[in-house]
Design a protein around this nucleic acid. Structure first.
Lengths: 201, 201
DNA sequence: TGTACATCAGTGAACGCGCGTTCACTGATGTAC
DNA sequence: TGTACATCAGTGAACGCGCGTTCACTGATGTAC
């Protein structure tokens, strides 16, 4: 079962990466075994090491790919600050909260990422900073550096909000957190747009 | 090695819970084996099931205990909104970020908690809502229900901020996120104190 | 066009290991006499 | 006070299982003649 056209192996690799992204977000990184990941991709465990050096290698690759795709989605947003608000509302929607496997890898895995190997975290950092850069460009009139930090803060807030909404068992409370998160996001966007470095105190 | 005074077993149980809390936060729940947890507590694996029904039972117990202790710490804060700001600054400090094992269980485990069994999540929800209640009481003049949701939102933001700061490999960026998180927290506290339900848009 | 062969993606069994859990046993202590 | 015994927290080996990883092998295909 080999000697396919040149694309064949690349397609298998992509299937593994895509399936792994979903599985990691559903069951966690530690909670997803290589055999399961390969079965998800329609292959058997033995083929894994023809595509990746190790599970850690796949983790880093899958996270990068997840972030790359998330970044691509951003290009479909309305321009400027309006797109930022659009992103905020979509991110903190009930649909996103209830769709772990298709949702944001940060929301599903951020604390586990913090425990990963240095290489994985570096690759993750690159991906997330790219996304933040794209979003920061939407804060018109705000200096680049400042806009980036503002957006890191906003994004961190959004990630924590989804995670908390997923963890709470009281449905009403879980939904209220999302709604509050949107209001908070709007406040933070306005705050970032107002003067440079507002230091309330 | 038995028939100790009545306190003996209770002390062992407490040691297991305390050690498990730390270990879970460092290595994750899935990443911490029963044998390791027991060794941390100075015991061997076999004794575990004399204290807990299952690992899941310990997870729920350890999380509850972590939250109970965190709640106790809150009583040492300055009264009113000043205590809220004090909490915000301590939470988003470099020291807290760099102290996973001694830090907040939400920051270390929130996405993994979201994947836990219903019982565990219910017990977690109770704990976190207790903490939120205590903090919400500090928003003087704000209706109870509203204050609770405001604080859930603020807390979610803080948790996400620590997680992101831990995941980023660029030290300067990681620290900037913390600082930004504090500024954002202050903005959100002010926003919560201002009129009921401010709906910017 | 037809046949022989080299390629190599994928198979599936096996490696040692640690997982959560069970259980027969130990032995220091509190209690009864 | 001294001895015999019951208690039971803790030990440590073992259970079946899935982990990440390795490897001898398969067999469909592209290529060479």
């Amino acid at each position: 079962m080999a000697r396919y056209d040149k694309e064949h192996k690349r397609l298998s690799r992509e299937r593994i990466i895509e399936a792994a992204g979903r599985r990691f977000k559903t069951d966690g990184i530690d909670g997803s075994g290589v055999a399961t990941l390969m079965k998800d991709a329609g292959l058997t465990n033995g083929a894994f090491y023809g595509h990746f050096e190790s599970k850690e290698d796949l983790v880093a690759t899958a996270l990068s790919e997840e972030l790359r795709r998330q970044r691509e989605v951003l290009t479909g947003l309305a321009p400027g600050t309006a797109g930022l608000e659009q992103f905020l509302r979509a991110y903190l929607s009930v649909e996103h909260r209830d769709d772990r496997s298709g949702g944001c890898p940060n929301a599903a895995l951020l604390d586990e990422i913090g425990r990963c190997a240095q290489d994985t975290r570096t690759s993750y950092s690159d991906g997330i900073l790219g996304i933040i850069d794209d979003l920061a460009a939407r804060l018109e009139g705000v200096p680049r550096r400042e806009a980036r930090v503002a957006l890191l803060g906003l994004f961190a807030s959004m990630v924590g909000t989804i995670q908390l909404s997923r963890a709470l068992t009281d449905r009403r409370m879980a939904n209220a957190v999302l709604e509050q998160g949107i209001q908070n996001g709007l406040v933070l966007i306005r705050s970032a747009l107002q003067g440079t470095k507002p230091r309330p105190r």
